[in-house]
Amino acid sequence: MLLQNDTDYQDEIFKNIIESNQDFFKIQFDHCHFTNCDFSSTQFLSCSFENCSFENCNLSNIRIKDCIFRDTTFTSCKLIGILWYECRQKSFTLSIKFKETVIDYSSFYKLDLQKCSFEDVHATEVDFTEANLCKCKFNNTNLSGTTFIHCNLKKADFSTAVNYQFNLSENQVKDAIFSLPDAIQLLYSFGIKIH
């Protein structure tokens, strides 16, 4: 099935579709399921994904300008190099679950991510600058090289996350949850040496 611009899809199953390097405009997806699809380097412009799920899909380097994601789940997907902040809208909260997914080199700059969850995610060099991550859970998530600057991390759960390092004084961290030994890295920004 080839996707058509300016179309509404409801309760559709998209399987083994290869639509890389394409441009799609004003498509509404509601309760749709995507399996083993390749949308790498594709542009989705002014599209909406509501109550959708993606499984074993490659969406690396997609562009999602003015798109909406509500109650959408990505499982075992590649989502490398995505500028998620391009889908930002006024008073918009991104509502996504990432499971066993790679989101390396992506940016969530200034986004409200309170309704997002990260489970068994590989998140190398992801940019969360000025994001609202209040109550977010980073279950078994690798945060190597990831940027947290001026973030709301209140009640965020890093207890099973690994390789995170950020300046506590540059973020709101009240009631955030950390565990040893990874939490020791948070002291490095204060110039503290631990032997």
Rank of each mutant, 00 (worst) to 15 (best):
F166M: 06
T35L: 14
A131V: 05
L94W: 01
D11P: 02
K65H: 11
F128G: 01
H150S: 15
L143S: 01
I103S: 02
I103W: 01
F92G: 03
F166V: 09
W84D: 00
S169F: 15
I68T: 11
G191H: 12
S76Q: 09
Q114K: 14
S169G: 12
C134Q: 15
S144I: 02
D6K: 09
N142H: 05
I64D: 00
S91D: 15
H150F: 15
S48K: 11
I96R: 00
D104A: 08
K99E: 13
Q114I: 10
S48I: 09
C67M: 04
V102W: 01
K115H: 07
D175R: 12
S95Y: 02
D11L: 07
K15M: 10
C47A: 08
V121N: 01
C87H: 01
D127S: 12
F25P: 01
S95M: 08
T141S: 08
N56A: 07
F74V: 05
D30Q: 13
G191V: 08
D104V: 06
Q22D: 03
R70E: 05
G81S: 07
K90A: 09
T124N: 11
I149N: 14
K97G: 04
D66L: 14
Y188K: 14
Y188S: 08
C67V: 05
D112S: 14
T73W: 03
C87Y: 00
H31V: 04
T7F: 11
H31E: 05
S107W: 02
D175I: 10
N139F: 12
C57M: 07
I82S: 00
D182V: 11
A156V: 05
D104M: 05
N21F: 13
C77V: 10
F166S: 03
F25N: 07
F49P: 00
K110C: 12
L113S: 03
S95A: 11
E125V: 06
N51R: 06
T160K: 07
F158K: 01
Q10H: 13
N171G: 09
D182S: 14
N58F: 05
D71V: 05
L153F: 06
C57D: 10
E125F: 12
L133I: 08
N21M: 09
F190S: 12
N167A: 15
